[in-house]
Protein backbone atom coordinates (compact mmCIF):
# COMPACT_ATOMS: atom_id res chain seq x y z
CA UNK A 1 0.00 0.00 0.00
CA UNK A 2 1.34 3.41 -0.96
CA UNK A 3 0.81 6.50 1.08
CA UNK A 4 0.82 9.84 -0.66
CA UNK A 5 1.82 12.55 1.75
CA UNK A 6 0.72 15.30 -0.61
CA UNK A 7 -0.21 17.75 2.10
CA UNK A 8 3.31 17.51 3.47
CA UNK A 9 4.76 18.39 0.08
CA UNK A 10 2.64 21.54 -0.11
CA UNK A 11 3.33 22.66 3.43
CA UNK A 12 6.10 20.61 5.04
CA UNK A 13 5.00 20.07 8.60
CA UNK A 14 7.99 19.17 10.74
CA UNK A 15 7.59 16.13 12.95
CA UNK A 16 7.97 16.52 16.70
CA UNK A 17 10.59 14.24 18.25
CA UNK A 18 10.23 14.16 22.04
CA UNK A 19 13.15 14.47 24.44
CA UNK A 20 14.71 11.17 25.43
CA UNK A 21 17.69 8.85 25.56
CA UNK A 22 18.70 6.25 22.99
CA UNK A 23 21.68 4.16 21.95
CA UNK A 24 23.47 5.75 19.03
CA UNK A 25 25.76 3.74 16.75
CA UNK A 26 26.26 0.08 16.08
CA UNK A 27 28.80 -2.61 16.82
CA UNK A 28 29.45 -2.91 13.10
CA UNK A 29 32.57 -1.64 11.37
CA UNK A 30 33.33 0.98 10.31
CA UNK A 31 30.59 2.80 12.17
CA UNK A 32 31.23 4.37 15.55
CA UNK A 33 30.60 2.10 18.56
CA UNK A 34 27.37 2.45 20.54
CA UNK A 35 26.93 5.13 23.20
CA UNK A 36 24.04 6.57 25.18
CA UNK A 37 22.76 9.87 23.85
CA UNK A 38 20.24 12.15 25.51
CA UNK A 39 18.53 14.66 23.29
CA UNK A 40 16.26 17.58 23.97
CA UNK A 41 13.03 17.67 21.99
CA UNK A 42 13.39 18.84 18.41
CA UNK A 43 11.44 18.97 15.19
CA UNK A 44 12.59 17.61 11.83
CA UNK A 45 11.16 17.69 8.29
CA UNK A 46 9.13 14.60 7.39
CA UNK A 47 10.59 14.68 3.90
CA UNK A 48 13.74 15.58 2.06
CA UNK A 49 13.78 19.12 0.60
CA UNK A 50 12.19 19.09 -2.86
CA UNK A 51 13.46 20.68 -6.05
CA UNK A 52 10.41 22.96 -5.99
CA UNK A 53 11.10 24.27 -2.51
CA UNK A 54 14.83 24.65 -3.05
CA UNK A 55 14.47 26.50 -6.36
CA UNK A 56 11.86 28.81 -4.87
CA UNK A 57 14.46 29.75 -2.30
CA UNK A 58 17.09 30.19 -5.01
CA UNK A 59 14.72 32.41 -7.01
CA UNK A 60 14.23 34.63 -3.97
CA UNK A 61 17.86 35.69 -4.26
CA UNK A 62 19.29 33.20 -1.83
CA UNK A 63 22.87 33.35 -3.05
CA UNK A 64 23.11 37.07 -2.38
CA UNK A 65 21.27 37.09 0.94
CA UNK A 66 24.06 37.36 3.47
CA UNK A 67 21.83 36.58 6.46
CA UNK A 68 21.24 33.00 5.30
CA UNK A 69 24.87 32.00 5.25
CA UNK A 70 27.54 31.18 7.79
CA UNK A 71 30.84 32.95 7.21
CA UNK A 72 32.35 29.85 5.58
CA UNK A 73 29.15 29.40 3.60
CA UNK A 74 29.22 33.00 2.43
CA UNK A 75 32.78 32.60 1.20
CA UNK A 76 31.62 29.56 -0.73
CA UNK A 77 28.53 31.32 -2.10
CA UNK A 78 30.59 34.21 -3.44
CA UNK A 79 32.71 31.72 -5.37
CA UNK A 80 29.67 29.74 -6.51
CA UNK A 81 26.92 32.32 -7.00
CA UNK A 82 24.32 29.88 -8.33
CA UNK A 83 25.76 26.66 -6.98
CA UNK A 84 25.76 23.94 -9.62
CA UNK A 85 22.74 25.55 -11.25
CA UNK A 86 19.14 24.56 -11.68
CA UNK A 87 19.80 22.01 -14.42
CA UNK A 88 22.15 19.86 -12.35
CA UNK A 89 20.01 20.20 -9.23
CA UNK A 90 16.96 18.93 -11.10
CA UNK A 91 18.94 16.29 -12.98
CA UNK A 92 16.07 15.61 -15.35
CA UNK A 93 13.40 15.09 -12.69
CA UNK A 94 10.11 16.77 -11.84
CA UNK A 95 9.99 19.38 -9.03
CA UNK A 96 8.42 16.98 -6.53
CA UNK A 97 11.68 15.03 -6.36
CA UNK A 98 14.36 15.83 -3.78
CA UNK A 99 17.00 18.35 -4.76
CA UNK A 100 20.48 16.98 -5.48
CA UNK A 101 23.77 18.63 -6.37
CA UNK A 102 23.84 20.83 -3.30
CA UNK A 103 26.85 21.47 -1.12
CA UNK A 104 26.70 21.36 2.67
CA UNK A 105 26.89 25.15 2.65
CA UNK A 106 23.72 25.49 0.57
CA UNK A 107 21.88 22.98 2.74
CA UNK A 108 22.86 24.88 5.86
CA UNK A 109 21.82 28.23 4.37
CA UNK A 110 18.48 26.90 3.15
CA UNK A 111 17.61 25.59 6.60
CA UNK A 112 18.63 28.84 8.26
CA UNK A 113 16.44 30.73 5.80
CA UNK A 114 13.53 28.52 6.85
CA UNK A 115 14.10 29.31 10.50
CA UNK A 116 15.84 26.02 11.15
CA UNK A 117 19.20 24.28 10.86
CA UNK A 118 20.64 20.98 9.72
CA UNK A 119 20.00 18.14 12.17
CA UNK A 120 22.96 16.94 14.20
CA UNK A 121 24.15 13.44 13.50
CA UNK A 122 22.63 12.26 16.78
CA UNK A 123 19.29 13.88 15.98
CA UNK A 124 19.24 12.42 12.50
CA UNK A 125 19.85 8.88 13.76
CA UNK A 126 17.26 9.26 16.51
CA UNK A 127 14.70 10.40 13.97
CA UNK A 128 15.58 7.66 11.48
CA UNK A 129 15.10 4.59 13.67
CA UNK A 130 12.89 6.10 16.37
CA UNK A 131 15.59 5.55 18.98
CA UNK A 132 15.22 1.79 18.60
CA UNK A 133 17.98 -0.78 18.20
CA UNK A 134 17.17 -1.71 14.62
CA UNK A 135 18.79 -1.50 11.22
CA UNK A 136 16.18 0.38 9.27
CA UNK A 137 13.40 2.90 10.00
CA UNK A 138 10.77 0.14 9.78
CA UNK A 139 12.72 -2.38 11.86
CA UNK A 140 14.86 -5.20 10.57
CA UNK A 141 14.98 -6.78 7.15
CA UNK A 142 15.47 -5.36 3.73
CA UNK A 143 12.48 -4.03 1.87
CA UNK A 144 12.40 -2.63 -1.63
CA UNK A 145 13.34 0.84 -0.44
CA UNK A 146 14.81 3.41 -2.82
CA UNK A 147 18.24 1.93 -2.94
CA UNK A 148 20.47 0.19 -5.42
CA UNK A 149 18.81 -2.91 -6.80
CA UNK A 150 20.55 -3.18 -10.12
CA UNK A 151 22.32 -6.39 -9.29
CA UNK A 152 26.00 -7.14 -9.43
CA UNK A 153 26.73 -5.17 -12.57
CA UNK A 154 23.47 -3.31 -12.86
CA UNK A 155 23.56 0.10 -14.44
CA UNK A 156 21.63 3.25 -13.71
CA UNK A 157 20.67 5.45 -16.61
CA UNK A 158 19.36 8.36 -14.57
CA UNK A 159 19.08 9.83 -11.09
CA UNK A 160 16.61 7.37 -9.61
CA UNK A 161 15.04 9.18 -6.70
CA UNK A 162 11.47 8.93 -5.51
CA UNK A 163 9.37 12.08 -5.05
CA UNK A 164 9.93 13.36 -1.54
CA UNK A 165 6.38 12.66 -0.41
CA UNK A 166 5.97 9.29 -2.08
CA UNK A 167 6.87 6.44 0.24
CA UNK A 168 5.16 3.20 1.20
CA UNK A 169 3.69 3.56 4.67
CA UNK A 170 5.53 0.47 5.85
CA UNK A 171 8.86 2.14 5.06
CA UNK A 172 8.35 5.23 7.18
CA UNK A 173 10.18 5.83 10.43
CA UNK A 174 8.27 5.28 13.69
CA UNK A 175 7.34 8.97 13.71
CA UNK A 176 6.37 8.98 10.04
CA UNK A 177 9.47 10.35 8.32
CA UNK A 178 9.96 9.36 4.69
CA UNK A 179 13.21 8.17 3.06
CA UNK A 180 15.40 8.01 6.13
CA UNK A 181 16.81 4.87 4.47
CA UNK A 182 17.72 5.31 0.84
CA UNK A 183 16.59 7.80 -1.78
CA UNK A 184 19.35 10.31 -0.97
CA UNK A 185 22.18 10.72 1.46
CA UNK A 186 21.37 13.63 3.75
CA UNK A 187 23.74 16.27 5.05
CA UNK A 188 23.96 16.57 8.83
CA UNK A 189 25.41 19.43 10.85
CA UNK A 190 28.37 17.51 12.27
CA UNK A 191 31.99 17.23 11.23
CA UNK A 192 33.06 13.63 10.64
CA UNK A 193 35.26 12.18 13.36
CA UNK A 194 35.41 9.70 16.23
CA UNK A 195 32.77 10.04 18.91
CA UNK A 196 33.30 11.10 22.49
CA UNK A 197 33.25 8.05 24.75
CA UNK A 198 30.47 7.45 27.20
CA UNK A 199 27.06 8.96 27.69
CA UNK A 200 26.52 12.42 26.22
CA UNK A 201 23.78 15.00 25.95
CA UNK A 202 22.94 16.83 22.73
CA UNK A 203 26.29 16.03 21.06
CA UNK A 204 27.27 18.37 18.23
CA UNK A 205 30.28 16.49 16.90
CA UNK A 206 33.91 17.60 16.58
CA UNK A 207 34.63 21.34 16.64
CA UNK A 208 36.43 21.20 13.32
CA UNK A 209 37.20 18.80 10.54
CA UNK A 210 37.59 18.18 6.84
CA UNK A 211 34.41 16.24 6.15
CA UNK A 212 30.80 16.59 7.16
CA UNK A 213 28.68 13.54 7.92
CA UNK A 214 26.21 12.15 5.43
CA UNK A 215 23.50 9.78 6.61
CA UNK A 216 20.93 7.40 5.19
CA UNK A 217 22.32 6.05 1.93
CA UNK A 218 20.93 6.63 -1.53
CA UNK A 219 19.40 5.04 -4.61
CA UNK A 220 22.96 4.30 -5.67
CA UNK A 221 23.88 2.34 -2.55
CA UNK A 222 23.37 -1.19 -1.42
CA UNK A 223 20.99 -1.61 1.54
CA UNK A 224 23.88 -1.95 4.00
CA UNK A 225 24.78 1.67 3.33
CA UNK A 226 21.24 2.74 4.20
CA UNK A 227 21.15 1.56 7.81
CA UNK A 228 20.23 4.17 10.41
CA UNK A 229 23.72 3.95 11.94
CA UNK A 230 25.79 4.24 8.76
CA UNK A 231 28.04 7.29 8.53
CA UNK A 232 29.78 8.61 5.47
CA UNK A 233 32.36 11.41 5.32
CA UNK A 234 31.97 14.01 2.56
CA UNK A 235 33.77 17.28 1.93
CA UNK A 236 31.26 20.14 2.50
CA UNK A 237 31.81 21.67 -0.93
CA UNK A 238 31.37 18.30 -2.65
CA UNK A 239 27.95 18.28 -4.29
CA UNK A 240 26.78 15.04 -5.85
CA UNK A 241 23.82 13.40 -7.52
CA UNK A 242 23.25 11.26 -4.46
CA UNK A 243 23.05 13.74 -1.60
CA UNK A 244 20.27 16.05 -0.47
CA UNK A 245 19.06 17.12 2.95
CA UNK A 246 16.20 17.93 5.29
CA UNK A 247 16.04 20.53 8.04
CA UNK A 248 15.58 20.41 11.81
CA UNK A 249 14.19 23.07 14.12
Amino acid sequence: MWLLLTTLALAPAPVEIPAGTYTQGAQIQPDAPPRQVSLAAFRIDATEVSIADFEAWVASGAYSERAHWSSAGWDWAKQNPQGLGVVDRAAGRTPDHPVVGVSWFEAEAYCVAKGGRLPTEAEWERAACGGKAQDYPWGVGEKAAVWYDGGKFGHLSQVKTSPVSLAPDDQLSPEGLAHMAGNLWEWTADWYGPWEEGAVSDPAGPESGTWRVLRGGSYMNLPSYCRCQRREPRRPEQASFTAGFRCAY
Binding site: Q29, P30, Y192, P194, L222, P233
Partner: peptide
Protein backbone atom coordinates in the same frame (compact mmCIF):
# COMPACT_ATOMS: atom_id res chain seq x y z
CA UNK B 1 46.54 10.73 10.14
CA UNK B 2 43.01 11.86 9.42
CA UNK B 3 40.45 9.50 10.98
CA UNK B 4 38.89 8.92 7.57
CA UNK B 5 36.63 5.93 7.01
CA UNK B 6 38.55 2.64 6.50
CA UNK B 7 37.82 0.23 3.64
CA UNK B 8 35.02 -1.98 4.84
CA UNK B 9 31.77 -3.17 3.33
CA UNK B 10 29.15 -5.51 4.69
CA UNK B 11 28.55 -7.80 1.77
CA UNK B 12 29.27 -11.47 2.41
CA UNK B 13 32.09 -11.70 -0.12
CA UNK B 14 34.03 -9.02 1.74
CA UNK B 15 34.26 -10.91 5.01
CA UNK B 16 37.21 -13.04 3.96
CA UNK B 17 40.35 -11.30 2.84
CA UNK B 18 38.92 -7.98 1.72
CA UNK B 19 37.64 -6.02 4.71
CA UNK B 20 39.98 -4.06 6.92
CA UNK B 21 39.75 -4.29 10.69
CA UNK B 22 39.66 -0.70 11.77
Amino acid sequence: ATGYRPPHVEEDWAQEGYNWSG
